[in-house]
Amino acid sequence: MSKKIRVGWDDLKPGDLIHVKGSTNTYRFKSRTDWHSMIKVEGDGVGVSATWKLGVEKEPVSVFLVVYEEDFAYATRPAPKRPRPSIVEPILPGECWARIRFGSQTGWGRIVKRYAPHSDSWLFGPDDKALYQASWCGTLAGLHPWMTWEELLQASKQTPILELLSAEEYYTRKAKGQS
C-alpha cells in the first residue's frame, strides 16, 4: 500500500481523491471550473454538491459532478517517491560495500574491484573489462564470477543496490553501530 499525502483546495491536481464533508465517498478530481468556488470531479454516490447535465438532446449527454469549496474536506494523492541515489561505478580498485534489498529485507554485500592488468597474463587479458565480483552474485558451483560494471548492475535488478559505500565508509558506520 502506497503512502498518501493530504492536499488542500488550492493545490489540487488531476487524479487527486476528493473527500467531501459528511460523506464516506471519494471522488477523483478532474479540473477546475470557471467559478473559483467549485471543481469538477468523477464518481458516483451521495454527498456531491451538484450534478449538472450539459448537451443538446441530439448529442450524447455529458455528466459531470461538482464539489463546492465549502463542502470540500480534503484531498489525497500518492506520496512522491524518494529519489534513489545514483549508484556510481567505483574509481579505485579494492573493496566496497553495497546495501542491497533481498525481497522485503535489506543487507550488506561486498563488491571487489580488481586491479586491471596492463599486460597479458594467463588469467586476464589486456582488454578484460570484467573487474567486479559481488558476494551475492554466485553460480551453482558457489563461485563468484568476475563481471563488468554493466553485468553487475544487471544482476542487481534481482537484488537492487540501494547504496554504495567505500570500505572505509562502511567500516566506520559499522564501528558506530549504524549499519
Rank of each mutant, 00 (worst) to 15 (best):
S104H: 11
K157E: 12
M147G: 06
R84E: 11
H144M: 03
Q133K: 12
F124E: 07
D120N: 11
E89K: 15
K113A: 07
I161R: 12
C96K: 03
D127A: 13
A75D: 07
F124A: 13
H118S: 11
P145C: 06
R101I: 01
W136Q: 04
L164T: 03
G142T: 07
H118K: 14
P145D: 05
L123C: 04
A79S: 13
P83E: 14
G125I: 00
A79C: 03
F102S: 09
W149P: 05
E95F: 01
P145A: 08
P117S: 15
W146V: 00
C96D: 00
P126H: 06
G138I: 02
T172L: 09
E95I: 02
V88G: 05
W122R: 10
W108N: 06
A167W: 03
G109S: 14
R110M: 08
V88M: 08
A79K: 15
E169S: 13
H144Q: 10
A98T: 08
P93W: 05
P83K: 15
F102K: 14
P160D: 08
Y171M: 04
V112A: 02
A98Q: 08
R99G: 01
I87W: 09
E89I: 02
Q105Y: 11
S86N: 07
T159N: 15
P85H: 12
M147Q: 12
L165M: 11
H144V: 00
L153F: 03
P126G: 09
